[in-house]
Design a protein around this nucleic acid. Sequence first.
DNA 1: AGCGTTTGCTTGGTAGACTTAGCAACACGT
DNA 2: ACGTGTTGCTAAGTCTACCAAGCAAACGCT
Lengths: 117, 117
Amino acid sequence: MTNAEPWSALGEFIRSQRQLARLSLRQLAELTSVSNPYLSQIERGLYRPSAQVLKSIAEALHLSAETIYAEAGLLDQRGAETAASPRVEAAIRLDPELSTEQKEALIQVYRGFLRGR
Amino acid sequence: MTNAEPWSALGEFIRSQRQLARLSLRQLAELTSVSNPYLSQIERGLYRPSAQVLKSIAEALHLSAETIYAEAGLLDQRGAETAASPRVEAAIRLDPELSTEQKEALIQVYRGFLRGR
DNA sequence: AGCGTTTGCTTGGTAGACTTAGCAACACGT
DNA sequence: ACGTGTTGCTAAGTCTACCAAGCAAACGCT
């Protein structure tokens, strides 16, 4: 059964990158400390590897983690469109300079403004 | 048993972001189509969520996937946090829902908070 | 007081991510 | 011809990410 799972594109991508790097399955397995049979299964699209496995593969192949995550469809590629409103709240929440209470207060004010218009 | 797994920082981060967004576990569960008990376990650091779960959480909380991956240590990538202050102000200025006066007021409040600490 | 709802959590179970052991086919040196 | 090493793969098992069902405590609301 030549089974082509929808996400197998990732596996083929990894395999091609590995071959371009002239690495055998076992060599890549050693570099990533992932078992070689499992790597084989990943490349054939039988399983979807966890993020940590993806990350170590990326490092071993000298790819950026983003590249491989994007290929895996885990990184809604290119700046998410995100409507404007949530962007303000998100920016506030991530600000390391503010305390939790200050964040909540700011968001309350912001929502109050939205409510008015 | 107050066990603090090494990766529980991620869980605490998610929980704080969820609470700042004023969402209950079940609300976030619905948004992410992840079961609420599992979310609870993630937030308490009992399990490490897969990349796809992380991604949907990021979307529901209006965070970039990169942000949450970085928090999970899956994206050791370069300087993640960056200067946050300009980001909040920029987001406010770009918000089309706010009037000019409202934007100025919000930024005044924000700068007041920064002044304090 | 009572009942409905909402909160977060525990329990039991399933599936799939991942491993160790091992196999068949192909290359090489003798 | 026979080793020995390499290649990728299969088989069988373990572990854990994840879900459905359900529970106790806290909240209204009447």
